[in-house]
Design a binder for these strands. Structure first.
Lengths: 233, 233
DNA sequence: AGAATAGTGTCTCTAAGACAGTATATA
DNA sequence: TATATACTGTCTTAGAGACACTATTCT
């Protein structure tokens, strides 16, 4: 019984890859805006990896669930009150933190653009993928693999893989959507994240059982209004 | 920097759900033996949960990966030298261990029956599922939900879910198979784990790209010999 | 009318499942 | 020859993808 209390054991922290969507401003209001996938990053102000870019996260309080710790940190660091979270993976490499043995229980976080817009926009970095290498950019800067601290670039890759695969076999996409959306919006979310074009007819057939028709329509778009859909429960 | 060293933090352990297959003895050698899914359990000899059944596992040494810790424990507790392991989930409920805050990084383990047979057979419990409730039995006893310590019954349920879903979209089944096997054996593994019958013709078509034909055949079976297959790489 | 997006109808191809049949070993 | 399992052929149906088409709003 008392052996347990003398046992040297790792520190435990939690980090989250919080994704949302950003719709780009377009010059002409008649053109459809482009959807981009974005991730929440922050710049470290302390050693180690001072000045590098990282995922939001931190240590667990004793008796605190990792989900709770992440929500607390997101509120502190990004004034972010609520987002969907699911456990991603637990990273344990002994050298992943130079200070000590620290394992990280990581989470995949998703939020709709509406929620994301409530926070400072410079923390959201749009993600683009070229030959499997991820690039991140906001209006001020570009960052890439070398600008990340810890194993966080690696974690983002794993998270994106998970997001892509769950997009096709689950209804996880709703956590990225606002309450009401058009099928064209939904399609562009799929196309952005999976980096793969589809025809509207085929897309609509495939996702028919994911959405619920409403009586609402878009308007003043400069072209034919689109029916609004919502999550099918 | 020194704040980290005063931080009260959870203990970290790792547990594994190691599955294998057991082919039942049949009275007549002409009848095909039945395949059963089995899991490795051991009886706790210390408090808490003394006398209850549990998954093999234990605390991580500092600088030790959870995979390594699990392999070490499996060797100690079950003389088990090598098995496939993949991370399952990290369980963190503050009350999951009455001694202290202990999180468990759990693994899904799979091994072929050949490997599994090297260990004492009373540690392998055949699993049957009735109305979603799991039952475990070996030649001596039956155990059920209430006979488990910690949250290990829950963990087994999560593991089985993962095994079932990965069986249909990945080639994970090979970790349960010996090097050479017949398609009927492979089919009965699928049918056992997924609890769902299929016709041989349809099964063979579906799994054609998973296996590699060889020139070998079974013999002395009392009926037509079956071609042996191996993993397709 | 023209521009822009919304939405539909239909053909093909592939894969899953149902089902009936043939093949080949041993006792 | 009987038994038991191994293996194949084919029909139907459901879904994915390609592609051409129609519909509706605003300027």
């Amino acid at each position: 019984m008392d052996t347990i209390y003398t046992y040297p054991h790792p520190y435990v922290c939690t980090d989250a890859t919080v994704f949302t969507l950003k719709t780009q401003d377009t010059t002409s209001y008649r053109k459809l805006p482009k959807t981009k996938l974005a991730i929440l990053l922050y710049r470290r102000v302390e050693e180690p990896f001072k000045g590098k870019w990282c995922l939001p996260g931190g240590f667990l309080n004793i008796d605190e669930l990792p989900e709770e710790a992440i929500q607390r940190k997101l509120l502190e660091k990004a004034n972010l009150s609520k987002c969907y979270l699911e456990q991603l993976y637990t990273f344990c490499a002994p050298d992943r933190d130079p200070r000590a043995r620290i394992i990280s229980i990581t989470y995949l976080g998703l939020m709709s653009e509406n929620e994301g817009l409530k926070m400072p926009p410079e923390q959201w970095f749009e993600i683009t993928s070229t030959n499997g290498q991820l690039q991140f950019s906001n209006h001020q800067m570009n960052i890439s693999e070398l600008d990340f601290g810890f194993d966080h670039y690696h974690i983002i890759n794993i998270a994106l893989e998970r997001l892509r695969s769950k997009l096709v076999y689950s209804n996880i996409v709703h956590h990225l959507m606002p309450e009401y959306f058009t099928l064209t919006q939904l399609q562009s979310v799929y196309e952005t994240i999976l980096d793969k074009k589809e025809t509207a007819a085929n897309f609509r057939r495939k996702t028919a059982d994911l959405v619920q028709e409403t009586e609402l329509y878009t308007k003043d778009m400069g072209h034919r209004p689109a029916k609004l859909f919502t999550k099918r429960s």
